[in-house]
Amino acid sequence: MSDRTGSRTARSGPRRRETRVAYGFLTPWIVGMVVFTIGPILASLYLSFTDYTLLSPPEWLGLENYQRMLEDSRLHKSLLVTVQYVFVSVPLQLALALGLAMLLNRGVRGLPIYRSVYYLPSLLAGSVSIAILWRQIFGSEGLVNQLLAKVGVEGVSWVSHPDYALGTLVVLNAWTFGAPMVIFLAGLRQIPSMYYEAASVDGAGAVSQFFRITIPLLTPIIFFNLILQMIGAFQSFTQAFVVSGGSGGPADSTLLYTLYLYERGFGSFEMGYASALAWTLLVIIAVLTGLNFLFAKRWVFYGD
């Protein structure tokens, strides 16, 4: 994995040849990274300082797009919606994932069946099909209200109510707890059983074992899931787009950041402004990831 000391001088010949071979293997990836990743990132930084509608060449604006962002009240609404969505749905999803993983970890008979049932929604939830289903389920005469009617409760049209529409998307994201659950299960299995044996010899109960053994030893996995799911949640698009019919409505209550970006970029072809939005998203995600790593030092326990 790391350079062996001394190999540099002793084997510089073979190593140089290996470098050439390596770059041969890496060529497709490097070309792809330059053309489709680094190039676009730099291009969008440039475009973010311009007015560009695809029809005429970009026109330099300086910081105007960013100033506009400061005054754009729909953008502020959209940021608020996104933050609410991410910070409610991800903890909910991870709590479910960990809870179910704990239940399943105790050598439950039929584990593969339970795991499949819980995991399946994670694979399907990103599809338009499920978004369509959600729109019906949480509609005025949808499944949820049909079931509520059975117990005598009259529901509202959840997807078209500004107070609840985002909630339906939070539920949808929580529904995908299966993927982090599978990762938690694998992590739980790596905790040596002797820790629990030793703890119970010392008279530690289930609760204290959970907080003093399971949680501390699982922190790297919790951290990994947190990063992954937060980045994923910031990128949610399909569900909000389909459920709101492409508008982010009602009353912009489901206008996730990505929807607003799509609307500016591909609805009205304001490519310059959309680039400024995209770069801001990049900075937000980078800062959050950085903060996560920073705080991780305090609470993530990496063993030896």
């Binding site: 969008s44 995209a278 990049l282 995600i285």
Partner: peptide
């Protein structure tokens, strides 16, 4: 995120 790259 793909959204950062999609415009360019």
């Amino acid at each position: 995120p793909i959204h950062v790259l999609i415009v360019p």
